[in-house]
Amino acid sequence: MTVGHVHDAGSILKLQVVDQDGEAVSLTAATAKEFWFRKPGNIHTKVDALFFTNGADGWLQYTFTANDMTSPGTWFAQAVVTLPGSLLHSSYYQFNVEPNLE
């Protein structure tokens, strides 16, 4: 499982949105694209995601700031994409945020 670290700034979350067959879903027509997070303690937050390229390959990304990954533990991310006439929610992606040694 991929990991980040508490208060990492510059670390990147990069998710590819695929269909049931594993094929990339084109997001070029998306009018909004977000990552929703569930932090430890069932705390929810969301951020605007960006295309990694132009959306045609389904890849979205977000660059964490120092104030994003504030708590260690298991995190879940979900891509939420607004396409013309539909609002689509992806499955969850799980990753760990580890504490720092200080």
């Binding site: 991929t2 670390s11 590819q16 891509a79 992606y93």
Partner: peptide, 8 residues
């Protein structure tokens, strides 16, 4: 770091 994966 880079956290990378796929969602459906």
């Amino acid at each position: 770091s880079q956290i990378e994966g796929k969602v459906v």
